[in-house]
């Protein structure tokens, strides 16, 4: 990897770390999801430290160019991340559905009880 590529990775890592930290500070992102992004940012920052390891690993699985290894890893990572978010989205929808249904049923019961109380007073 060239010094320019190192610099690009470090800048990318720093930018995403700042972005995630800001989002956490503003309470715009849940801690459980933010940890993942902090880890990804730190991964970007530490790539230059372990270049030899990544090069050796790349050669082991038949990827000569470290940049190709980076893109290969990123593709798999993004796929897994999308799957995780689809799961989280499905769970969130089911929870929202249950809340909306319960609210509608409770609202109807409260209205009935209020009418009953009013008729007794």
């Amino acid at each position: 990897m060239t010094p320019k590529q190192y610099a690009l990775l470090i800048i990318l890592g720093l930018l995403s770390l700042v972005l995630v930290t800001t989002l956490i500070q503003k309470n715009r992102i849940r801690i459980r999801y933010s940890i993942l992004w902090v880890a990804i940012s730190l991964f970007f920052l530490t790539i230059p430290l372990f270049v030899n390891f990544y090069t050796a690993f790349g050669e082991l699985i038949g990827i000569i160019n470290p940049i190709s290894l980076f893109f290969f890893g990123a593709t798999i990572g993004l796929f897994l991340l999308s799957l995780q978010f689809t799961l989280a989205l499905s769970v969130a929808f089911n929870q929202r559905k249950a809340t909306v249904q319960q609210t509608a049923l409770l609202e109807e019961r409260i209205e009935k009880l209020e009418k009953l109380l009013a008729s007794k007073q």
């Binding site: 929202r96 909306v100 249904q101 509608a104 049923l105 109807e108």
Partner: peptide, 11 residues
């Protein structure tokens, strides 16, 4: 029964 947000026909 009133839904507080639009959830679709099935829900």
């Amino acid at each position: 029964l009133s839904h507080c947000s639009n959830m679709g026909y099935g829900v």
